[in-house]
Amino acid sequence: MQVTWGNVTVTFSNPEEAKKYAEKVARKLGGQVELHNGQFRIK
Rank of each mutant, 00 (worst) to 15 (best):
F40K: 01
S13R: 13
S13W: 08
H36L: 13
V8L: 08
T9F: 05
T11S: 12
K43Q: 10
V33C: 06
E23C: 15
Y21K: 01
I42A: 01
T11M: 11
Q2Y: 07
Q32E: 12
T9N: 04
A18S: 02
K19L: 14
I42E: 01
N14M: 06
E16S: 11
L35H: 06
L29T: 11
N14V: 06
A18T: 01
V25A: 04
L29R: 04
H36R: 10
V10Q: 05
S13D: 12
V10R: 11
N37F: 05
G38D: 05
S13F: 09
E17N: 09
N37W: 03
T11G: 06
G30M: 06
V10G: 01
A22I: 04
T9Y: 05
F12R: 01
A18Q: 01
Y21L: 05
H36I: 15
H36N: 08
K20D: 10
K43L: 15
R41H: 14
E16P: 04
R41P: 01
F40R: 01
V3C: 05
A22G: 02
Q39L: 06
M1K: 07
F40L: 13
G38H: 15
E23R: 07
G30D: 05
L35A: 06
K28C: 15
Q39W: 04
N37G: 08
N7Y: 09
L29D: 02
G38W: 03
A26T: 02
K28L: 14
L29V: 12
E17L: 13
W5A: 03
V25Q: 05
A18R: 00
V3Y: 02
V3D: 00
V25F: 05
Y21A: 03
R27N: 08
N14Y: 05
E23F: 14
P15I: 14
A18C: 05
T9R: 06
G6T: 03
E17D: 13
L35P: 03
T11A: 08
L35C: 12
K19D: 02
A22W: 02
E16L: 12
E16C: 15
V8A: 05
V3H: 00
W5C: 14
F12P: 00
I42V: 09
K28T: 09
M1Y: 15
L29E: 03
M1L: 12
N7F: 08
N14W: 05
V25E: 02
G30K: 08
Y21T: 02
V10S: 03
G6V: 04
K24Y: 15
N37R: 05
V3T: 01
Y21Q: 02
Q39D: 06
N37T: 03
K28P: 01
K20Q: 12
N14F: 06
H36C: 15
T9A: 05
E16Q: 11
K24T: 10
Q32I: 15
K20N: 10
K24W: 15
T4K: 10
L35T: 07
R41Q: 11
H36K: 11
E23H: 11
A22C: 04
V8K: 10
I42H: 02
V33I: 10
W5T: 03
K20R: 14
V33K: 02
M1F: 15
K43T: 14
Q2C: 14
K20Y: 08
G38L: 04
Q32P: 03
Q2N: 09
T11E: 08
K28Q: 12
N7A: 08
V8D: 03
Y21H: 03
T4V: 15
V33N: 01
K43H: 11
A18D: 00
V25R: 03
Q2K: 14
Q32T: 15
G31Q: 05
E16V: 13
S13Y: 08
E34H: 07
T11L: 10
